[in-house]
Design a binder for these strands. Structure first.
Lengths: 207, 207
DNA sequence: CCTACCGATCGGTAGG
DNA sequence: CCTACCGATCGGTAGG
């Protein structure tokens, strides 16, 4: 250690860190939003959490609404990667439908988001509002509903479910089991709710 | 109209209005909480809504947390009066269990709270917090779970449900249908979700 | 990306 | 119950 050496200042970010920075901000935002709510998420607290100044965040996102929209998009990507894509690895049909629900329960258990299901939390926050953020959340809800119905149709076409299965009704009921498990798990942190969810899904899909 | 008549000022509240005032404040608070969230509910906005000054509200409740606790209590009374008590008028057993769920769907449709189920909304807001408000909301959740299980036990004992019915599991699944109907209805204001809820309950309770 | 600032609103209090 | 006020924090902007 020569006397010429001085204490290094905080490492200067390279330009190429811009996108990585944006991504890590949005992941922190998605996590925080499940605790404070997507509306309760404040730019000041997010700045603190990410070690950035408030105006630094505004340089990235322009407004709170833009930040919220980007956060919903990021949460969607996380949900796809943690729940949907792993489920698509299961054999098509009834097995894949069960896998989707199981990966949903698993993502709760693994605390992918600290406050449970991002979309259940965000929907509760924005359900009575109007505007692009509500619309993005509603679209995610519809997407999951459609996915459940598609997987249900595959199972039905394979003869694994009754030929007269009402797919919208099936999706509604499975969605209810996901919501019930999320609510109970986040409120009580009791994995028993996840087991009840798994049992409910299997009973509903029994031949 | 004699010239002696003057425009009346806002009617002076009589002392006995105190309790009525408190009740109407709390009813407004419970309604507002399903829109802005129980935490997002601000004392300033509630003061505006009730035509009272902020410090007037503090004279009633002392702190925001006390207001939140009193609001949860009031929401509970409304839920009892609008959902639970009407259901208890139905014949004991399976019919009463269905009536409870139906009155839940009905209270959504009648917009008893403008933002849907108070407890679903409040739970989403407080599920990751700690303290007496979270505890009061969690207790309401447990109460409903126990009620569903009791009514399920009656139905089972009457032979209207299988003798080996898992009551906790039944309550979980019915609760899921209530939550699913609430989420979809509040997000999309589509009564189809309420019909799906009614069908789901009946299918689950079919002999 | 930063510092420094803006008006508005938050929960809450003093004093009546 | 009121007016008048407190410090803290909100979303957002100016200027660099």
């Amino acid at each position: 250690m020569s006397t010429g050496e001085i204490v290094q200042p905080a490492p200067r970010r390279r330009r190429s860190d811009g996108e990585r920075s944006r991504k890590s901000i949005l992941e922190a935002a998605a996590a925080l939003a499940t605790i404070d709510g997507l509306e309760g998420l404040s730019i000041g607290r997010l700045a603190e959490r990410t070690g950035m100044s408030k105006s630094g965040l505004y340089a990235h996102f322009g407004s709170k609404q833009e930040l919220q929209l980007a956060t919903v998009e990021t949460a969607n990507e996380i949900f796809q990667a943690e729940v949907v894509e792993p489920a698509l690895a299961a054999p098509a049909g009834r097995e894949r439908l069960i896998a989707l629900c199981d990966h949903y329960f698993s993502h709760l258990e693994r605390e992918v988001f600290p406050g449970g299901c991002f979309f259940a939390s965000a929907a509760a926050d924005f359900d009575t509002r109007a505007g692009p953020v509500r619309d993005a959340i509603a679209a995610a809800y519809t997407d999951l509903d459609e996915l459940l119905q598609e997987l249900g149709a595959d199972a039905r076409d394979r003869g694994e479910l009754a030929a007269d299965t009402d797919l919208a009704q099936l999706s509604f009921e499975l969605g209810g089991f996901l919501l019930a498990a999320n609510s109970a798990y986040v409120l009580f942190r009791d994995t028993g709710a996840l087991d009840q969810g798994r049992r409910a899904v299997r009973a509903r899909l029994a031949v």
